[in-house]
Amino acid sequence: MIVAERKPLSEIIAKVEGYNRLLIVGCNTCVAVCQAGGEKEVAMLAAALRLRFRDRQPAMEIIERSVERQCEEEFNQVLAEDIAHAEAVLSMACGVGVQTLVEQFPDAIVLPAVNTKFMGRPEERGVWSERCIGCGNCVLDKFGGICPITRCAKSLLNGPCGGSENGRCEVDPENLECAWQLIYDRLARLGQLDRLLEIEPPKDWSTARYGGPRKIVRKDMVL
């Protein structure tokens, strides 16, 4: 899923203090699961903003809404009236959701309330970590199911650098495992250590973001 983190309250306050009619829109998919921008977080943020602006005259109007998937226009139709009424929309969806609102409601001022972080998964309660950078050409089968492009700080494809120590990555030993230690252990477990001797050629990065913004057109599905 897409993992996000709510922006600091001070940053959000600075963005919205110039408006008097605010619509906060959460998204009940990824950002709800990672507890950054779902219905519950919308309520919490609205309460915090009401408290912050409680002395304002006239009172700041804050409307709370949440949609199922803000990245798809059909789920956002119900917001049309509220968006027309609000001076600004504070979106708690990922960057895709924010931009969907912008494209769908071109006259609305839409402000992001979360920082979209990565594609990852919850490792334990309150801990999420990255698993995929969306390089556009999956090679997980070559590395025992562990992605060195995502999980090695240098995206190394031919083994660990000198900064692997006791299974940790030198870039942030407290938080990061060495991807190549994980790959080594996994291939050892699978009896596939001989794979480590193969030289992995330079990656074709054209399928990644480096080739420009990406788009998929499925001719079989286009109406």
Binding site: G162, S164, Y184
Partner: peptide, 23 residues
């Protein structure tokens, strides 16, 4: 090329050298 005999996993250190030789 460089080689770090002191990094982990130790078994990878000779493998890395062998790959550099092959390269």
């Amino acid at each position: 090329g460089a080689a770090n005999p002191f990094g982990d996993p130790f078994e990878m250190r000779v493998i890395r050298l062998a790959k550099k030789v092959a390269a």
